[in-house]
C-alpha cells in the first residue's frame, strides 16, 4: 500500500525527519507513537503534501505511484486521507458542501458518476450514524464553532465518506473524553477492510485499546527507533519513552 524509504524532511530549514523507513500493507493497522515534537505530525503532513515541509531525501511509493509527483488533492483522489491533529475551520462553507465536493472529485478520478444531492445526503446520514454525529452538523460551516471533540469526530466523518485506501489519523484521540474516544475508535474499526490500511499516530497507549494495531513503531527525534507488535505499546506505557530514547542514543 505505502512504502516509505529513507525519508528526510525539513521544515523552516531544520531537519525534522531523519530517515524514516516504513511499509504498510493492505489490511494492516500501524501505530506510530513517540514523545511530543518527535516528528509524528511532520511525517503525516509530508505524506499528505503540506507545502511547508520540504522533502530532502528518500521516496514514498503509494499504491505503485511516486507520492511526491502528486499534488495534495491528487493524493486524496488516489485514496490517501489525513485526519488532522488540528482541523481547520472554514466559515461560510457547509460541512455537506465540503464533503460532497471532495467525494465527487474523488469519484470523478475513479471514473464514477458524481452523486446528486439526494444520493449524497443519504450516504452522509449513514456515515453520520457511524460516528454518532447529530444531523444538525450537516449544514453547519466546516468545523466552525465545533468543540475539540466535535472537530475530531468530523475528521472521522470525512474519512468515512471519502473511503480512503490509506487513512492517517494524527492524534485523533487527543482532546476526546472516553465516550467520544470509543465512538471514534469504533468508527475506525468498522471502516477497516482487507483492502485498506491505517496509520494511527498517537501519544498515548489509550487509543490502542480500542483500535488494535498490527504493528507499533516508536518515533523519536525524527527516526523510528523501535518497531514491534501491540505489546510494544503496553511496554511503553509502563516504562515511558525514556527507555527507548536511551536505546536510540546507544544505537
Amino acid at each position: 500500500m505505502i512504502e516509505i524509504k529513507n525519508l528526510h524532511a525539513n521544515v523552516a530549514g531544520k531537519e525534522i525527519l531523519k530517515g524514516i523507513d516504513l511499509s504498510v500493507h493492505a489490511g494492516e493497522v500501524h501505530a506510530i507513537m513517540g514523545p511530543n515534537g518527535s516528528g509524528k505530525s511532520t511525517l503525516a503532513q509530508v505524506l499528505a503534501g503540506h507545502p511547508a515541509y520540504e522533502v530532502t531525501e528518500g521516496e514514498v511509493i503509494f499504491d505503485g505511484k511516486n507520492l511526491f509527483d502528486l499534488d495534495p488533492e491528487e493524493r486524496a483522489q488516489e485514496g490517501l486521507f489525513l485526519a488532522f491533529q488540528y482541523p481547520v475551520e472554514i466559515p461560510g462553507v457547509s460541512n455537506s458542501y465540503f464533503l460532497k465536493a471532495g467525494l465527487n472529485e474523488i469519484r470523478k478520478h475513479r471514473g464514477l458518476e458524481p452523486l446528486d444531492a439526494m444520493q449524497f445526503l443519504k450516504l452522509l446520514k449513514e456515515k453520520m450514524k457511524l460516528v454518532e454525529m447529530d444531523s444538525s452538523f450537516i449544514n453547519r460551516p466546516v468545523n466552525e464553532g465545533f468543540s475539540g471533540g466535535e472537530k475530531k469526530r468530523n475528521e472521522i466523518l470525512q474519512m468515512a465518506v471519502l473511503e480512503p485506501k490509506l487513512a492517517i489519523l494524527d492524534e485523533t484521540d487527543s482532546g476526546l473524553d472516553i465516550d467520544a474516544l470509543k465512538i471514534v475508535a469504533d468508527g475506525v474499526t468498522k471502516l477497516k477492510r482487507p483492502d485498506n490500511a491505517a496509520i494511527v499516530v498517537t501519544h498515548y497507549q489509550r487509543l490502542l485499546n480500542y483500535i488494535v494495531p498490527d504493528f507499533v513503531h516508536v518515533l523519536v527525534n525524527g527516526r523510528i527507533v523501535k518497531s514491534g507488535t501491540k505489546e510494544l505499546a503496553l511496554e511503553l506505557e509502563a516504562s515511558g519513552y525514556d527507555s527507548v530514547k536511551d536505546a536510540a542514543a546507544v544505537a
Partner: peptide
C-alpha cells in the same frame, strides 16, 4: 496556506479550494 492545504487534502483542486 494551511486552510488551502486542508481543503485540497480532501480531494478538492486548487481553483475550487
Amino acid at each position: 496556506p494551511m486552510s488551502l492545504f486542508y481543503v485540497k487534502s480532501r480531494g478538492i483542486g486548487e481553483e475550487a479550494a
